[in-house]
Design a binder for these strands. Structure first.
Lengths: 144, 144
DNA sequence: ATTTCTGCAAATGCTTTGCATTGCA
DNA sequence: TGCAATGCAAAGCATTTGCAGAAAT
């Protein structure tokens, strides 16, 4: 795994402690946190860090392509440091987001398919998201 | 096409002019409007209708399965009266949402695939959404 | 030295809520 | 009649913005 500092530098954005910290949090977790979760996680270590900075930081990291933004149900946008396209499952009860690893999205990026959809819709496409909705194992146990 | 009044009645929800009007708007358009757009569309005909009612109505229609809710980019949730699963394309510049018709999502609902993903994730799945992101034809022409 | 980022607080925008009134069944 | 839906205004969150001071290149 490449050093975080290097990765930011390669993207030609200024390397600040806040940016390294936010990116580090996202690389260490599989929980697809939203901005508030990232903020809470960083608070003990960076008491001065502002929520607005977390918002700005995930925006920058997303725009340079170091992380991806997930638009699943409620609770705000979620962030994922794994940028290789993969499907996500969302729990409609507790809001948990998990990766689906056993399904490749390569076929959705396949040259011919994207081209076909571009022709049909006239859109110039750049990315794809596949979301599955349901109930997570923990919420399934609980009645109702 | 079935009469709107009948469809609401079959879902055992109270039939009101507001609900029929909102559902009618969604059946007549392919623009995947958000709540504000539906509200603006109805204002001339139903000047007394409240924005809150539109919010409550799309929520009810979605819950009984007459419409589906789309969680694409900015500008609020979008609504679609076509409930058969199909992919959507979202324009990252102007926010337009369009249907993709040339790609079937049946394979994503295939018994074996859903089962496989349920086994891997432990989630009990109920629905799927496939979103493509890019730029629409109109926005592609404009520079930058 | 410049440019960009951060932190704060205020502002914005979408959505929900509480409640009195109205309307469907 | 009784329960549910509507309309209005206020409240609630998530997110954005403007700007002065701080930090990175």
């Amino acid at each position: 795994m490449q050093a975080i500092e290097e990765m930011l530098r390669e993207k030609r954005i200024k390397v600040t402690p806040q940016r390294m910290a936010v990116y580090a949090v996202l690389r260490e977790t599989r929980r697809h946190p939203n901005v508030e979760m990232i903020y809470q996680k960083l608070k003990p270590t960076y008491p001065a860090m502002s929520l607005a900075t977390v918002y700005k930081t995930v925006d920058v990291l997303n725009k340079v392509g170091l992380i991806q933004e997930l638009n699943v149900g409620e609770g705000g946008l979620r962030y994922d440091a794994t940028i290789k396209p993969h499907p996500h499952v969302y729990c409609e009860k507790c809001g948990k987001v998990a990766d689906v690893e056993g399904f490749s999205m390569d076929n959705l990026h396949e040259e011919s398919l994207l081209k076909k959809i571009q022709e049909e819709t006239g859109y110039n496409l750049s990315s794809v998201q596949l979301y599955f909705y349901g109930k997570c194992p923990e919420c399934n146990i609980v009645n109702k």
